[in-house]
Amino acid sequence: MIDVITFLITGAIVLGGGIGVIVLSNPVRAALSLVASFFGVAVLFIMQQAHFLAFVQVVVYAGAIVVLFLFVIMLLGVDRHEDIRAEPLAGQRPAAGLLGLMVLALILGGLFLSGPGGDDGAVALTGTKSRTAPISQLSESDSDITVLAQDLFTRNIVAVQATALLLTIATVGAVVFVRNKGGEDVVIDDPGTARR
């Protein structure tokens, strides 16, 4: 019973936040809606006993990424109301709608194919069984962190290291691009003196 009530409230927050991101014309408020949505997703994770994922969701997405969004919005001063009726890219909205419908169909398909009482949506969608055991079947001492760590640092170790390398390259690349070689400061407002 409590599960259902929590799910309904959280679902409303997630969906409301998602709609807010699209509908609100002020970028700062849209970013705040995104935070609300992330929070709802974190609560959904906790309901599935995935505590680690829930808090990583809050720390990384709500705590770091949206903060960076807001930081950029504030620094660039684009925090004015946008006219969201104009469509900057022709055909963008129908395409987005179509994509959304396709994702919805995929999720519903997975739900219906696995059927009532069927507990493995992974089999229905991909044909193979999920390689990790559901968290609900773990013993008390084996938390989700242990499972996650074992999976990440044994089977997926190459992927983890490749990601780390990629992120390092991206960071170094960003620094190289931003560094302004050659002496003069770039004046963005004046096209005559700007080097880049």
Partner: peptide, 24 residues
């Protein structure tokens, strides 16, 4: 909480919002 210390990190990263939005 099973991940108590992460909760501390999550809350301290959320506390930034109060200060940031107050200023903005």
């Amino acid at each position: 909480l099973p991940v108590g210390i992460l909760f501390f990190l999550a809350m301290s990263s959320l506390a930034v919002y109060g200060i940031m939005l107050a200023g903005w």
